[in-house]
Design a protein around this nucleic acid. Structure first.
Lengths: 241, 241
DNA sequence: TAAAACTAGTGGTCTAGACAACTATATCTT
DNA sequence: AAGATATAGTTGTCTAGACCACTAGTTTTA
C-alpha cells in the first residue's frame, strides 16, 4: 500500500491513499474514517505522520475533524471562483450573455473639487471623464461614469476605452492594479438615466461606486455606475480561511 | 512573552506573536524570520511546536518557506473577504452605531419546495423560520428572514437568535462556518415591508440573499434581507492577485 | 428512576530527539 | 583562477512516546 523506502514522503503517500478512498466513495460522505491511532497501526507509522496527512486533507477541504468523535469526510463543494469582483465584461460572459459597450462621452477636463478628492489628486489636475453605456445582448444594463487622472494614463483614447482599458493598463503601461473598493446601494432611477436605460421613472437601480488603486497606492479611477435592478444581480463569494 | 501554564495552546500564542511582529513591521516583507531552532530556543519549546505555529501562518499566507534557506514574510494579503461574512452587529459597530435586534417571528416548520432547494435538504425536513428586524440607534435598518435546518441546530431558541447565533454555532456546537455566497440587488420596497421599516411606498431597498455553508459542505442558513437604501451602503474591498 | 461516576475511544497538544535534503559560504586542490 | 570539497545552517520528514479535553456510552450510586 505504501512504500517506506520511496523518496516520496510517507505522509504524502497516505494523503493520496485517503483521497482515493474518498473519491471512490469507499469512505462515504459525513462518515467517520479510521481513527489516527488505527491508521498509525495499519501503516506502521507514527501517529504524527498520520496527523500530517490528515491535517493537509482537512486544509484542502476533504475532511473535517470533531474533537472526541473522529474525522469525517466532507461533502464536495462546487469550486466557485473566489474572485469577489469581476469586470462587467467577464461577468456577462459568465451569465451567458454577449456584452458590449458604447462610449457616450470622452473628455479631458480639470478635476472638480469632489472628483479631486475621490482620486486623491490636487484640484485643477487634468482627468478623463468618460461616460459609457453597458449592454448585454444589446439591452442596456448600466451607465458608467469614470474619472481617471491624465497623469497616470497620458495617452488614453476613446478606442482603448472602447476595447479593453484594463488590458491596456496592465500590458502596455505595465501598471499593476492592486485593489478596489466598491460601495453598493439601492436607489430610484434619475429621470435622465431612465431614458438611457429604457426604464420607467421610479424604478429601482443599483448604484455602484468603485475606487481602483494601483500597487503604488495611487487611485487609478473612480467609477459611478447605475445598474438596472430588474436585470442585474451582484454576486459575491466569500471564503473564510 | 508566552505563558506555558495558560490553557491557550503554546503554538497559538507563538502564532499571535509572529503575526504581531509581521503586522507591526518588525519582520519586514520578504525578509527571513528567526529559524525554527532559534525560536525553539527562545521560547524553550520543542521545534515541532514552533513548526505547528509557522505551518499555520504559512497556510494563512503570512509566511512562506524555502528549504535550506529559511522562512520569510509574505507580502500582505487579502484580509477583507471576511468582511462580507461579518454580521450585521459587527458591521454597525464598525460604523459607530448601536445595533439591536427584535425577533418578530420564530417558528419550526416543514421546508417548502423552494426553501428545501435553497438549503439542499429534502422536502418535509424541518427548518426554523426566523423573522427579525435589525435596528441601528433604534432606527429600523433591515428585515431579515432566515431559514435554518433543524437537524443542524436541534436546540435553537429565540434567546440564542436574539443574542448571538454565530457565536453559539461556533463555540457551543463546534460547527465551523466555511464560506458564504451573497447576491445583492436593488428593488422597490413592498407595502408590508415599508410599514415595518418606516419607509414611504415606492422607495428603494437593497435585497441581500445569503447562503452560509459549514466546513462539512452543508448549508447552515439561507437569509433574505431587505435593507433601507437610504441608510445602508454595502462595502466591498477586494485585492487583486 | 434519575443522577453521578466511570471508562474506552477520539482528536489536540507537546516533547526531545533523529536523519535527509537543500543552500550558501568558506576552504582546499589542481 | 577555477573547480571540487567540506561545513554550518536551514527546512523537511519521522519517531515513540506522553498527557489533556471531549464524546458517548455503561455502570454505579443515591
Amino acid at each position: 500500500m505504501i512504500d517506506k523506502q520511496s523518496p516520496i514522503p510517507i505522509y504524502y503517500q497516505i494523503e493520496e491513499y485517503l483521497k482515493k478512498m474518498i473519491e471512490t466513495g469507499k469512505f462515504a460522505v459525513n462518515q467517520v474514517i479510521p481513527s489516527e491511532r488505527e491508521l498509525s497501526g495499519t501503516f506502521q507509522v507514527s501517529r504524527m505522520t498520520i496527523r500530517q496527512a490528515v491535517s493537509d486533507l482537512v486544509n484542502e477541504g476533504y475532511l473535517y475533524r470533531r474533537k472526541g468523535k473522529g474525522t469525517f469526510v466532507a461533502e464536495q463543494k462546487i469550486e466557485q471562483p473566489l474572485q469577489g469582483l469581476t469586470s462587467f465584461t467577464e461577468d456577462m460572459i459568465k451569465r451567458g450573455m454577449t456584452p458590449s459597450t458604447r462610449v457616450l462621452h470622452f473628455d479631458k477636463k480639470k478635476a472638480s473639487v469632489s472628483i479631486a478628492k475621490q482620486l486623491g489628486i490636487s484640484e485643477q489636475e487634468l482627468v478623463y471623464e468618460i461616460k459609457r453605456i453597458r449592454l448585454a445582448d444589446d439591452i442596456p444594463m448600466a451607465l458608467e461614469m469614470s474619472y481617471i487622472p491624465v497623469k497616470l494614463v497620458p495617452n488614453l483614447t476613446e478606442t482603448i476605452v472602447q476595447d479593453s482599458f484594463y488590458k491596456y493598463i496592465e500590458d502596455t503601461l505595465q501598471l499593476k492594479i492592486e485593489d478596489a473598493v466598491q460601495a453598493l446601494e439601492a436607489s430610484i432611477v434619475l429621470p435622465e438615466d431612465a431614458k438611457r436605460l429604457d426604464m420607467k421613472p421610479g424604478a429601482a437601480v443599483l448604484l455602484i461606486h468603485r475606487h481602483t488603486y494601483l500597487t503604488s497606492g495611487k487611485a487609478l479611477e473612480w467609477v459611478k455606475s447605475v445598474y438596472r435592478a430588474d436585470r442585474y444581480k451582484f454576486l459575491i463569494n466569500m471564503k473564510r480561511s
